[in-house]
């Protein structure tokens, strides 16, 4: 038998091109899976947002109900007669980092067990990110869109409105996607660093 280097059984993609090709296959798959399993995937965000509502917004919001892919926010602001104002939130917008993370993780190296563990850990980490986006859009709707509604007598200070505006923009424009990328980089650190040429190309110090 010829001697020589033997490929490791779970060899990772050899280079950036291989990784990108694998990502090209896995990302659409992850997007389809994420979109069709949305009602199940966003249960964690609903639970987290509901808990935050009970803790911090109970005087303004009486409940967050699941309506298919949407969350229906029931406020305590009267809307004439016995009704109250409600509005819808699309939680999927705040979880677009999940398929991004899943697609990149599936395209990364590792055996099946390790990948499943990374997937579960990453998706778990991204649940609060989605909940943050949902809570911020609820606060933004209350502080800006419904602030002038009769019965919405809560006084928002200018600083609070600024903080809500910044949090809403962060939670909808930046955090969902970037959190997905960061979760991938954190959970596939060595592989990500290798893809980047060793994080500055510096070789690890040789051990004595």
């Amino acid at each position: 038998m010829a001697e020589g280097p033997v490929a490791a059984p779970d060899a990772p993609p050899a280079n950036l091109r291989t990784f990108l090709l694998a990502a090209l296959i896995w990302l659409p798959t992850a997007f389809v899976a994420w979109y069709w399993s949305a009602p199940a995937v966003q249960t964690g965000a609903w639970l987290t947002a509901s808990a935050l509502r009970a803790l911090a917004m109970d005087s303004l919001v009486s409940g967050i109900e699941v309506d298919g892919r949407l969350f229906e926010v029931v406020t305590r602001i009267p809307a004439g007669g016995n009704g109250v104002l409600t509005f819808s939130v699309d939680p999927l917008i705040y979880s677009c980092g999940m398929p991004l993370f899943a697609g990149l993780t599936l395209a990364s190296s590792g055996n099946a067990g390790a990948i499943i563990v990374r997937l579960l850990a990453g998706l778990l980490v991204l649940v609060p990110v989605q909940a943050f986006g949902v809570v911020m859009v609820i606060l933004k709707t209350l502080a800006f869109d419904l602030a002038a509604a009769p019965g919405s007598a809560l006084a928002w200070t200018p600083a609070a409105r600024e903080a809500i505006a910044l949090g809403y923009q962060l939670g909808s424009l930046v955090v969902p996607g970037v959190a997905g990328l960061m979760a991938w980089a954190a959970l596939n650190g060595a592989f990500a660093a290798e893809l980047a040429g060793g994080l500055g190309g510096a070789k690890p110090a040789k051990q004595a």
């Binding site: 280097p5 033997v6 490791a8 779970d10 060899a11 990772p12 050899a14 990364s108 190296s109 590792g110 055996n111 067990g113 390790a114 980089a185 954190a186 596939n188 650190g189 060595a190 592989f191 990500a192 660093a193 290798e194 060793g198 994080l199 510096a202 690890p204 110090a205």
Partner: peptide
Amino acid sequence: AIPRPQGTRDNPGPHPFGSRRHPS
């Protein structure tokens, strides 16, 4: 000698947020 790729279970490579022993 078998070159082992990093990022695998057998050879995870320097831990991304490892100790001071790992400069990377």
